[in-house]
């Protein structure tokens, strides 16, 4: 196993949080985290930032659109063109 530096650890973090890393890459990152307090902090911040983005980036479908979509799915041929 290779020892990775902070730069490499940081580069892997968001992939790690979305289950994107190969087993060996996970192991290398976790080994780095065991002795690097700074990167533990950055990983925690990554989690917080991602949660903030998910919270702000989630949208409620407006009612008029929902109605148009329901018409469209129910087979009203004109629904798709209606504005």
């Amino acid at each position: 196993m290779t020892l990775i530096d902070c730069r490499e650890a940081v580069a892997r973090m968001w992939g790690y949080l979305s289950q994107g890393l190969a087993k060996r890459d996970v192991k290398e990152l976790e080994t780095h985290l065991e002795f690097c307090e700074r990167c533990c902090g950055e990983l925690e911040f990554s989690r917080q930032l991602r949660a903030r983005v998910a919270e702000a980036g989630t949208d409620q479908m407006p009612m008029p659109l929902r109605q148009r979509i329901n018409d469209l799915l129910a087979g009203d041929a004109r629904a798709g063109e209606a504005k």
Binding site: G15, L17, S18, Q19, G20, V53, G57
Partner: peptide, 22 residues
């Protein structure tokens, strides 16, 4: 970013949706 962070897809699923390598 949208697919993984907001919609919770894994990187592998995002790669399939975007048709790019992992």
């Amino acid at each position: 970013l949208i697919l993984t962070t907001i919609h919770g897809f894994s990187c592998k699923e995002a790669a399939a949706i975007l048709k790019v390598p992992l």
